[in-house]
Design a binder for these strands. Sequence first.
DNA 1: GCACAAAGCTCAATCGATGAAGCAAAAATT
DNA 2: AATTTTTGCTTCATCGATTGAGCTTTGTGC
Lengths: 339, 339
Amino acid sequence: MDGGKPARKTTIYDLATLAGTSASAVSSVLNGTWKKRRISSQLAEKITRLAQEQGYAVNMQASLLRREKSKIIGMIVPKYDNRYFGSIVETFEAMARERGLFPIVTCTRRDPELEMEAARTMLSYQVEWLISTGATNPDRISELCGPAGVRSLNLDLPGSNAPSVISDNFAGARELTRRILANCRQRLGQALPLLFVGGRGSDHNTGERIRGFRAAHEEVGIEVDENHILACGYAPEKAEGALGALAQREGVLPQGMFVNSTISLEGVMRWIRRSGHYEGRAPVMGCFDWDPFAALLADDIEMVRQDVPQMLAAVFDIIEKGAPPNTRIEIPPVFVTRG
Amino acid sequence: MDGGKPARKTTIYDLATLAGTSASAVSSVLNGTWKKRRISSQLAEKITRLAQEQGYAVNMQASLLRREKSKIIGMIVPKYDNRYFGSIVETFEAMARERGLFPIVTCTRRDPELEMEAARTMLSYQVEWLISTGATNPDRISELCGPAGVRSLNLDLPGSNAPSVISDNFAGARELTRRILANCRQRLGQALPLLFVGGRGSDHNTGERIRGFRAAHEEVGIEVDENHILACGYAPEKAEGALGALAQREGVLPQGMFVNSTISLEGVMRWIRRSGHYEGRAPVMGCFDWDPFAALLADDIEMVRQDVPQMLAAVFDIIEKGAPPNTRIEIPPVFVTRG
DNA sequence: GCACAAAGCTCAATCGATGAAGCAAAAATT
DNA sequence: AATTTTTGCTTCATCGATTGAGCTTTGTGC
């Protein structure tokens, strides 16, 4: 390709020399303000053509340094290993671009240190907004943003220093539990108390889902067994370990199960397969999350799909119209119809 | 939080005033060159403390404008909706950070226009390297980068203008096919020619996988049916449609199947379930890709996992040591042991 | 033919961080 | 005591794009 060319990047000064004009004319032509600045369309065309030929790309660093608005919008996200976060990132990028914003996304692997580090890096990039998705400590991030004049916003997990957009975890979990219980009744003749597996007891979403889980049991007069609420963490290994330990202690596990995420479901499925515990009488399952393959695993696994497009619509609505820091928007999740 | 403060960002000039010193002293303290510049550790400490207190974050735009190296490394990726690309992005970010680089990733949804647009944006951000992952036209991207002095690199799908790191698709597909054929023999008594589903006929990987598919058939003297090679595209709907059309034409589909990606597998599974075609005698399957739930779908679905850590190790090796544009590194994929 | 306006530009300051060059004071050497 | 060296800073030009404030030239009106 290149035989050792200097490879210095073309600047507006280079283009100005080539066009026999000034850098300021070039700049205004390339950023679209040339009509306002009364540049002839003749010159505009010439400059545009030259820029094209030279493969000119504006130096964002220089441009942003001068402008007052960066139009950069940052997002931090814990993992890319499931459909929920994948879809959040994909939708976020598309919606940001539609609005003329430049999305920057970074993944923090649920590491609180990395989370702060990433947030600081985002500030350095002069983001105008920072969306903390599923952050372990969204409030610390908001505190970092506040004094810098950067607006922040929480997604998936709520915080108290910035507006939050989350799923309606309580109602979603209650409805999911109702459905699992109904399936139990249908398949086993009666509805017995379910097992709850996955999630961190300390996080808001897990708390709300457990509340919904309890509410649905209460509605039909079934008592929840407190030892059967395993908020053991999200990781597959955690769920696997928790089930193993419970089976060890109690011998037989419940026939119905509420799994708190596809991540945990991965561990649950692995354990069921390896331990052979449910041999011949597969448990009735539900999962607060969705995955196309998981949905096919069993005929009657109920899945709740968090409504990512609606959640991000709410996010951009806040970005456009503003909202007080204590705003909390809860988006109803969607029940996946099977077939 | 804020009661309407000015919220202007703290600059080194503000810190200089607060510390009663000069901006250049502040700068050198904060970027670590202060020893070389003989700033007293007393002053260094004072400045560091003030920066901490004020929540100072360097303005990357200004800093990068001045430096000659940006240390930014860009990656474009087609989708976030599967484990393969998810794991590529996650590993890429982690490895880049380990090396003191700043990763920027963006998703182009297999849209050739968006791909070029994203590449141009990356150039504007002054990336030093651009990794095109699974790009529809990696060579056009390399052509854009070359004159700007930005080095480019292809991942997953090869190009001819920049070094490429890909899976060993031929050997992987041949071994996968062998295994599916062996499973057929074991389950059905004999090995019959398989069906190939998914992928674009025009892309290098699909071509190589078809070649491996043929080779494995040839080894055992089975003739491939040309009508049973359905390179219909990756999208689930495409795979679904192709299977439906084939069933329409031929009535009965082969008992063994090679699916070209988990994306296509999604459609295949959906079709199998909806059509009821394989009722009672599930097909023997293999998939060139891995997903934890897909792996659990059937007892004997063979999955090849592309070796993402090795692929990215090769990528960073090239970045550190260099490589001619015609380099092509093929990483053997890994066979997932079942259980 | 002169005043005045509009068109079509250019000039130069600016954004914040960086680092080469320079300068004054303190310390060491002769 | 005079000179040199070292220490510990500051000054200022610079990176590339942007934009308010000019400054010519051409056009219009009377």
